[in-house]
Design a protein around this nucleic acid. Structure first.
Length: 287
DNA sequence: AAGAGGCCCTGATAGC
DNA sequence: TGCTATCAGGGCCTCT
């Protein structure tokens, strides 16, 4: 599911829903996510206010009281669901909750607020929850990441220096979070198509003009995707259960053997594997 | 330092 | 119907 745009969509809906609320109870069904959930996890979150919901790259960051932070990564298959309290069963004195989209399996983490529950579901368990005890350790963790495409730091000089003499192909670098943060496998193919650059092109051969296009179309593509509510392939939905629509704008992803959508080009979209990830491009108009 | 490859895990789908 | 193989949007680690 989640590259930067999808995570931004989740972060926005979470922010609208839980900012300023208190966590009353934390329950973990399965601690074995990509990083094992720490034994003090529940203790660190319980009875804390959520001051703010932030995002960096593909990570959601809950700013808590006492300068603690809870970083959430959705991995490949993580989703967040909200269960709203809709009533009380008088006989058992237990609450009813409602969410038509909540999966039955793989609900690993639940945060109970006053009138709702936030539930983390992740079949493949490639996601994780990690607590940082102060701002310094949070900043240290994210210091190894490259800038987001929107950042002024993602500029021509930065790219030129980073790619200088690099032998790997350019698609590898778009996926390399140390170079640029937030781009994943789908948007990498889309950005390179719009930039008219062949994904196999060696990074050291990338020209200034190429770099300008990469910067421009990285920003444009991710922004457009965010505005479309992200991309829904498989069954990504935001926490309210709504789908995104950017997949309707895919120019190359999942379009193997279909016509190139550049009006001037008669090419067909090819699928190749680059470092074990499927990669889509037009070998006529992407040079 | 840079690059190649393996690995973590479940589920959907295709092919027989 | 049921088996097996393959693939999936991420990122870490180790080895050379």
């Amino acid at each position: 599911m989640p590259e930067l745009p999808e995570v931004e969509v989740v972060k926005e809906s979470l922010s609208r829903t839980i900012t300023g609320k208190k966590i009353y109870k934390v329950s973990v069904k399965n601690r074995n996510l990509r990083i094992k959930i720490h034994k003090d996890f529940e203790k660190n979150l319980k009875l804390k206010f959520i001051k703010k919901v932030n995002r960096f790259s593909k990570y959601i960051i809950l700013d808590l009281e006492n300068n603690k932070y809870c970083v959430i990564h959705l991995g490949m298959s993580g989703t967040i669901h909200i269960l709203k309290k809709i009533g009380l069963n008088n006989k058992t004195n237990t609450s009813f909750y409602h969410s038509p989209f909540l999966p039955k399996k793989h609900n690993h983490v639940t945060l109970k607020l006053k009138d709702m529950s936030i539930i983390y579901n992740d079949p493949r368990r490639f996601g994780f929850f990690k607590i940082f005890n102060n701002k310094l350790s949070l900043e240290k963790y994210f210091s190894r990441f490259g800038p987001e495409p929107f950042s002024n730091k993602f500029n021509i000089n930065y790219c030129k220096n980073y790619l200088y003499k690099k032998k790997k192909n350019i698609k590898n670098f778009l996926l390399d979070q140390k170079f640029v943060s937030g781009i994943g496998n789908i948007y990498a193919s889309e950005i390179l198509f719009k930039s008219k650059i062949n994904p196999k092109k060696e990074a050291s051969l990338i020209t200034n003009s190429d770099i300008k296009k990469i910067i421009r179309f990285s920003r444009a593509t991710l922004n457009h995707a965010i505005k479309s509510g992200g991309s829904t392939i498989r069954d990504f939905k935001n926490i309210g259960g709504n789908k995104g629509y950017y997949q309707n704008n895919f120019k190359v992803y999942n379009r193997e053997n279909k016509n190139c959508l550049d009006a001037r080009c008669k090419g067909l979209i090819k699928k190749i594997i680059i470092t074990n990830r499927s990669t889509f491009f037009c070998n006529i108009c992407q040079k």
